[in-house]
């Protein structure tokens, strides 16, 4: 049983305050959706949870199974079981998935067999594993690669930052059903960052959180996502007069 616990988290860049008191707890097997308008700071929250440089946590805490993550670097957080599937997976020439698996301390010893099987299930070709990671891949292929790594590295809590963008409907179904299975079979806890409820039809959230201007302004059941689809974010954004320009973050 794992638990990612975020309490009253405030963070900033040199110029601007980005997180203004985030409270959220994600446990093994749970699916949480984080939805919010462009520029509300969703991706930045993902980066800060993962310890990307360039942000300073000014108040509050992030812990995973009792470990204070704010004191740890990115790879150490990952080694504790936190995973970030990126919105824009980076292309790295000359570094293959095989290299990643060989070097990651998370990869199980017998990954070779399972990775081939998983990649087939996710609709990736054998060659995709041998070329530079994400190199010359379509948006959809990159998201399948992210999912393959998430599953193969046996993460405990995964942050999926717009995993749906770039995937077509079939891809979305394949990827989300695989992650859904991991929540059931392997107790994966998930934070899904998305704009659309389509992903949530496949990957059914236990909770939906509305994120505006660096904090969660409302939490509710899966129904909240459906409501959003009809009404948009206006209800929450207009009530906040202190709208801050977050520079597209």
């Amino acid at each position: 049983m794992s638990e990612l616990h975020i309490e009253n988290l405030h963070a900033r860049t040199e110029e601007i305050e980005i997180l203004q008191g985030v409270n959220l707890t994600i446990r093994s097997g749970e699916v949480h959706a984080l939805m919010g308008p462009n520029g509300s700071g969703k991706s930045t929250l993902a980066y800060i949870l993962m310890g990307r440089s360039g942000y300073e946590v000014t108040k509050g805490s992030i812990s995973l199974d009792g470990h204070d993550l704010t004191k740890l670097g990115t790879s150490e957080r990952a080694q504790l079981g936190l995973f970030l599937a990126m919105q824009y997976p980076v292309e790295i020439d000359g570094v293959t998935l095989q290299d990643v698996m060989n070097e990651s301390s998370l990869a199980p010893e017998d990954f070779q067999k399972s990775i081939e099987e998983e990649s087939r299930n996710l609709g990736l070709e054998g060659n995709d594993l041998k070329r530079g990671i994400n190199l010359d891949m379509s948006g959809g292929e990159k998201k399948r690669m992210e999912t393959l790594q998430l599953i193969s590295l046996r993460s405990r809590i995964a942050i999926l930052d717009e995993l749906d963008s770039g995937l077509d409907i079939d891809g979305l179904r394949v990827v989300s059903s695989r992650i859904e299975r991991a929540t059931k079979e392997d107790d994966l806890g998930v934070l899904v960052i998305t704009h659309y409820s389509r992903l949530l039809e496949e990957l059914k959230p236990d909770k939906v959180h509305i994120f505006v201007n660096g904090r969660i302004v409302e939490s509710g059941s899966a129904k909240l996502a459906t409501e959003l689809e009809e009404t948009g974010y206006e209800k929450w954004t207009s009530s906040l007069e202190t709208s801050v320009n977050l520079g597209g973050l």
């Binding site: 993962m50 990307r52 440089s53 670097g73 990115t74 790879s75 990952a78 080694q79 995973f83 970030l84 990126m86 997976p89 980076v90 790295i92 570094v95 990643v100 070097e103 990651s104 301390s105 998370l106 990869a107 790594q149 590295l153």
Partner: peptide, 9 residues
């Protein structure tokens, strides 16, 4: 950052 998120030291 990408490779670090994969648990590579």
């Amino acid at each position: 950052f990408y490779l670090e998120t994969r648990g590579i030291p």
